[in-house]
Amino acid sequence: MKPGSLSTFLRTGAIWAFVLLELAFFGIVGDMVSTSNTPFLAPDNLLLTLKQAAPIGIIAMGMTLIMINGNIDLSVGATFALAAVVLLDSMSWPFMAAMGDWAIPLAWFFALAVGALLGAINGLIVWKTGVDAFIVTLGSMLGYRGLVFMYNGEQPTSNLNWTLVDFAEAQFLGLHTPTWFLLAVTLFMWFLSTKTVHGRNAYAIGNNREAAVNAGIRVGPHMLINFVIIGFLAALSAVVFYSESGSVNPNDGQLYELWVITAVVLGGTKLAGGSGNVISTLGGVIAIQVLRKGLGHMGAATETVNLVIGLILIAVLFLDRQLNVKGREALKT
């Protein structure tokens, strides 16, 4: 075997093995403990799990690219909420209301544009000031959340459009609309990160920024593009989710950034940048959702779920570290 291929396999394949392990566990042990009559592995339940994984998953695809690039974005939860507010509120504007169902694509456009704009603001600040993305997006996380509250105070913003609900709840080939969005975004981001120049350069910048600059790569524009992408995806996530629910609380999307980062890290992307891939991130997203769903199936409370996910995250990273340290030593002869 070529050097490093074992750890490469573990990094890309292990998360899927973990998902299978989870399914087996909840399918057997879960069903024994559960008071519910439907088995955990019932197709409908699994399809629902995928659908519920979509909001975090769509954002996680953008976060993977951001983290490969060596940055991080903590403002995605707030962007998600603000895009949702714009989506639902814009449909009640008089000129939009007059358009009937034609207002829907326009409302989607407004929400997505707001997401891309918020991302662009983050990207421009990171590029032009040179301040660390962690700090910049920590600031914008608070700032964007402030905008959400300024929009409608503590009140929820609601607008239920049945055409939208029908669209969001539709199933095609068994998969729900949000799942299709998740798969489409994953595919798109896979192409972007592995097949395009932008993706290649993102890896190079995250791995060794100075060498990338010396190779003539303009680092700033690449970072800006990535922030625009993740802002857009945070808004897309909101669009998909709130088309169905029709009501957004100003606190919605809080802690999303942490769930997203957890999924990306579980998928093997390094916080330091330079490595990672979106397919493994998809594995991380599904692993978390199966765990949440499965523990719920067994009757565990939300607190327990969070505790278990936290422990698993640390255990996985510890394992990864053990494997890598060994691999690196063997190479250093």
Binding site: F191, K195, T196, V197, R200, N201, Y203, A204, N207, N208, E210, A211, A212, N214, A215, G216, I217, G274, S275
Partner: peptide, 28 residues
């Protein structure tokens, strides 16, 4: 520190400055 992206493979390092000139459509 300045010349190589150590985590990338040999080919990608060698073509790093011109990968933009080599693309076919949007793809590398």
């Amino acid at each position: 520190g300045q010349g190589l992206v150590l985590g990338m493979n040999c080919r990608d390092n060698m073509t790093l400055p011109q990968v933009d000139d080599l693309k076919a459509g949007p793809f590398v």
